[in-house]
Design a binder for these strands. Sequence first.
DNA 1: CGCATACGCGCC
DNA 2: AAACGGCGCGTTTGCG
Length: 483
Amino acid sequence: MTKTASAKSSKKEATYLQTLEFKEAQAMLFLIDSDKTDPSLEDILMYTNTKDISNAHKALFSELSRNETLLDLYENVDKPLIPIVEKMEEVGIKIDVPYFFSLSKKYHEDLAILEKDIWKYAGREFLITSPKQLGEVLYDELRLGEKIKKTAGGARSTNADMLDSLKAEHPIIEKVLEYREIQKLLSTYIDPLPKLIDFESRIHTHFLHTGAATGRFASRDPNLQNIPIKTEAGAAIRKGFVAKDGYVLLSCDYSQIELRCAAILSGDERLLETFKKGEDSHASVASRVFNVPLDEVSKDQRRIAKVLNFGILYGMGVNALKDTLGSDRKSAQEFYDTYKKTFPTLVSYLEEVKMQAKRNGYTETLFGRQRQLKMMRSPLPFIRAQGERMAVNAPIQGTNADIMRIALIDITQALEEKKLTKHAIPLLQIHDEFIFEVAKGYEEQAKDTIVSVMEAVLKKHKKEADLIPILVSSEIGSTWGDL
DNA sequence: CGCATACGCGCC
DNA sequence: AAACGGCGCGTTTGCG
């Protein structure tokens, strides 16, 4: 059997010769204890106090069977998902290798120029990739920055936020930021990815179905869930992910899914209403918080509402709000208070989640997936606060993750029923979206099938939660960058 | 030399 | 002071 499966599938020697039995055991253990992310064989044997995977599997199934909800999740969601995800890994996604090479050449040249510029400004050569050395140059030698935030380890921070605030003080800053961006793209994506291709120029990630404590997948070796998109230089990388000849790429993503989950879980009427009406949710929230008509919401008001919306999902405090908005403490506090006053049911829901987490030691998603949060009972206030933030986020992120899992199963079934299995093939899952490879001529049929299945997940599996429309937007293109 | 850690940063 | 949830991964640095 897979004796060879390395202990913690350690970075270097990860062997992925994992049996179905092992993966099922992982899935069961993860449903029982969300902290057992990507459990190793040893973890599983240890937990079940058994000597082989077969007995461990039996033991886990027997324990899982004592909880109807978790057993249901296992039988109908996590277990059937295993072969589906395995198939996605096997298929992989094609990349345009010559294109990656040309990007590499260009960016390495850019990098060399930036390096020279930076050394010139610094008055000496140093390792720009070393935060320690960069800190010495900026803060000791060039004497930039008055009040420098410290890192967790006590060093003067040189992160992008810090550098941004120093931009006006010295031209070296902008160059360093550029250098960092290009260096990141080269070393993490552009240069490593082409080394990973198979005979068809396809690369194969490994999805960890027990990868994140909330129920999300993780993607590893390589991680294809963090391919750049934000900056122009980064987005260029997505153009290197392509459909094979005769096919196109199709992306289908849930829009505002986490905020919709928050609306459903909380039952907050005002939040639900913005989705019922199909409004731009950030603008709509802005209109309510700032008490202005929807069509008079300013750009800045919308921006603030967006930060508030996201902040709520993450358990953000006033301090973080202030930093994110770049505003003063007083107005941050006002925004925060007004938001809470505007969505009282949402706030009381979040309080309820924290209390439940403290009482039970775990949170639950809409579908009953648990996240363990024993830390809620810690004597240390900081740990408890951290637990509260996790507690607030876990049901929201986790419900989204459940919906994605169920959607993938339903999509697979629908494609089989419509005889589209060979013409529309799922390649990637990226938390709120799927990427498919679709045969030319089948674009519309595949898109319609997938979108309607995705939009129907809640009303099909959770009728009582069918409160607002769940919308999916889709794009078709010959490269990922076109989506 | 390999390994763990700190730091930083890519994505949702 | 401490920073808003969930991940994976690159480079540097110090250690055994």
